[in-house]
Amino acid sequence: MGRLTTHVLDAAHGCPGSSIKVELYRVEGSGLELVATALTNSDGRCDAPLLEGDTYRSGVYQVQFSAGDYYRAKGVKLPEPAFLDVVVLRFGISSEQDHYHVPLLISPYSYSTYRGS
């Protein structure tokens, strides 16, 4: 059975992005349905998959990372409003049997992602 996981790496400080709020939404028509909320651990990962089992199904999803709150908590002075306050990634899951891993590499002014393994 498939699952969805994520992790966050802080490129500005060269460390995992810990204690970052992660919200996962299923895109339903023109609306969003919240399906999971998590906080990254000291390794920048969520302690459990964001989706697995009966909740894991194909479709369009949106994951949101509270990057601005993370950097403010680290004492980074950000402009207001922050350039990247919440990083939003929208992606599709086409196979309910596959593991989808959506990592995020962040700094206060940039981010990168890819489909990992």
Rank of each mutant, 00 (worst) to 15 (best):
S66L: 05
S117W: 13
E23T: 11
Y70H: 00
F91A: 07
G2R: 07
H13V: 03
G59P: 06
V8E: 08
Q97C: 12
R3I: 12
Y100K: 11
V102P: 05
G68I: 05
H7R: 08
S58A: 15
L78A: 09
D10W: 04
G2H: 05
F83E: 07
S18C: 04
R90C: 09
L105Y: 15
S95P: 00
G17F: 07
K77R: 06
H101L: 13
L39M: 13
L89C: 04
A11L: 14
D98S: 11
D43C: 08
R115P: 05
A12D: 10
T113C: 13
L24F: 02
G2S: 11
V102E: 13
S110R: 14
T40I: 09
V102G: 04
Q62S: 09
R115K: 14
G116W: 15
H101A: 14
M1S: 13
K74Y: 00
C15L: 04
V35N: 06
R57A: 12
F65G: 05
L9Y: 14
Y114R: 14
P49V: 10
R72V: 08
L4Q: 10
Q62D: 03
S107G: 12
T6W: 03
V63R: 02
R115Q: 14
R90F: 00
L84Y: 04
P49Q: 12
V76M: 07
K21M: 00
G68V: 02
E80W: 08
E28L: 10
Y71S: 00
R26D: 08
D43V: 03
L104H: 12
P49L: 11
T113L: 10
E33Q: 13
G68P: 05
Y71H: 01
G17N: 05
V102L: 15
A67M: 01
D98W: 06
